[in-house]
Nucleic acid binder design. Structure first.
Lengths: 133, 133
DNA sequence: ATAAAATCAGTAATGGTTCCTATTTTGGAA
DNA sequence: TTCCAAAATAGGAACCATTACTGATTTTAT
């Protein structure tokens, strides 16, 4: 259970911290193969899961496609483009949403909330103009 | 493109409308096999997808496990129990949350929002008391 | 140095979902 | 009614993301 050092995990973390986007496990795998040609996809998954469990990164389950991973663990929201699939940070302060439900009649223990927005991103909106695909 | 009648789809819809929980495609498949022993899982998926596209039901993608389907298409939220996996309606009026983000500086087209809550449901909380599994 | 524990690469297995094909059902028109 | 094209079906293969298993390798405390 004690976590030992591993070059692979170190690089995975470094890669995530260098990313503005929100890569999938497969994106990370592709990037890692440049440095570790023999790295296994399982290794990528294991380390992403471990890092997420330790709170060093966040795992995003945004419906379609694979899960994504975010180096930014501060509370914030995301926007998913229905057309190109891109995931970007959403400029809405996290607690603008999450504050209102403190005293409602719910009998279970509320631990958290998942919220994301979807639609068409700016880039796809502009490219759609003159009828191109 | 014109939708034709089908007994299977009719029964799938009837089953969903009789459900208080939020069954998965496989739940629906199991239920349908009682009436159509040879029904195909593909048929269930195709019809659930069709009904969702036509707005007669709602498809819920709540992270873990398979998608779920809800006969109630009115805007409302859900609570997912992290322990038993149950999905229940969440007693928070939908527009208490969804109103705040009209005039923020976002350049894309916002079409919708996905929000759900997670934690431990009342039943799991109570059963966990005396140390049983 | 050494040995236990953690991690690894490689690969098989899983679960949920979609896709394909030949056959059957539906619904409008002859 | 009967005929026909479109839509739907059952069955099964294929697909994708993820997890599980294995025996070899690396890390780290002694």
């Amino acid at each position: 259970m004690a976590t030992k050092y591993s070059r692979q995990r170190e690089q995975i973390k470094a890669y995530l911290y260098s990313c503005k986007d929100h890569p999938t496990a497969d994106n990370v795998y592709s990037a890692m193969r440049r440095q570790f040609p023999n790295i296994s996809l399982g290794t990528v998954y294991r380390n992403l899961t471990l890092l997420a469990r330790q709170g060093e990164i966040t795992k995003l389950s945004l419906g379609d496609g694979g899960d994504r991973f975010d180096y930014d663990t501060s509370p914030h929201y995301h926007f998913v483009c229905r057309q190109c699939g891109s995931v970007t940070d959403f400029p809405l302060a996290a607690d603008e949403l999450s504050s209102s439900f403190t005293n409602l009649s719910f009998d279970g223990k509320i631990e958290g909330q998942v919220t994301y927005f979807y639609g068409i991103c700016a880039s796809c909106l502009h490219n759609a103009g003159p009828g191109e695909k």
